[in-house]
């Protein structure tokens, strides 16, 4: 064996090929099956996609690095389920490009934070966490309220997501910017076709408390309020497995 190696190290190309082969096997065996085996992701009919406003909020969550302190993955451990709710299923992040499972909990898990607090609580908390939770070390995000949301490109976002496999329809893509505005400015002439496109349960209101304009804070709170509520699958015992 060592004699063989003695020859191998005299051959640059041989060494390169050996390294590539040795280093490829592990990833291939573990990753490739995940794309083919049906059991990896549960089949859930009521799983819905993010509305343009929620998607914009998700992108703010990514941009601000909230994932550095918050996970969105409740593990199958008793204490986690009691603290945060039913453990996370694969299907719940099926449309998450990329996933935001996180690796560090400087703050609590947010996988099921949707509906846990009122909009007012989130707004106050994001503007200055220490006003609401005095010992908190979460950063203040006061500028979100001052920054109008950029909606004009949302159609492009939906289109790119459709290319990677999220089932947005042509109708959704065409109306993306209007849908975002309508979801956060309900007084502004009704919700348009928003609920037909994304379902009756879609939450439509001025998330940041100000119906006059759409801010980044609207989008982020809309996203936080939908977390864990895109499907009920995790609450149904039948959905277990996977």
């Amino acid at each position: 064996m060592f004699g063989y190696h003695y020859r191998l190290e005299r051959n640059a190309i041989g060494l390169v090929l050996a390294i590539v082969v040795a280093a490829s096997i592990g990833g291939f065996v573990e990753i490739a099956p995940l794309f083919t085996i049906d059991e990896t992701v549960e089949d859930v009919p009521d799983m819905r996609v993010y509305t343009p406003l929620e998607l914009a909020g998700r992108n703010i969550y990514i941009r601000e690095g909230c994932y550095a302190c918050h996970s969105q993955m409740i593990r199958t451990l008793r204490d986690e389920v009691e603290r945060y709710g039913p453990y996370s299923l694969a299907v719940e992040s099926k449309y998450d490009h990329p996933m935001l499972w996180g690796s560090k909990r400087t703050g609590p898990d947010l996988a099921r934070v949707g509906g846990k607090y009122s909009d007012e609580w989130h707004v106050a908390h994001l503007i200055n966490p220490r006003d609401v939770v005095p010992p908190s070390n979460m950063p203040a995000y006061a500028w979100l309220q001052r920054t109008p949301l950029e909606v004009k490109d949302l159609g492009l976002h939906l289109k790119a997501l459709r290319q990677v496999g999220v089932p947005y329809t042509d109708d959704m893509i065409a109306n993306a910017a209007a849908d975002a505005r309508n979801q956060a400015m309900p007084d502004d002439g009704g919700a348009g076709g928003l609920t037909q496109r994304y379902g009756e349960a879609t939450q439509i209101r001025a998330f940041d408390g100000n119906p006059a304009n759409v801010t980044e804070l609207d989008a982020l709170v809309a996203y936080l309020q939908i977390l864990g509520r895109l499907t009920d699958a995790a609450y149904k015992p039948a959905a277990e497995g996977g």
Binding site: I31, T40, V41, V91, K94, P98
Partner: peptide, 8 residues
């Protein structure tokens, strides 16, 4: 947007 989502 990442080509992959969720578990993968």
């Amino acid at each position: 947007y990442s080509l992959f989502s969720g578990v993968q």
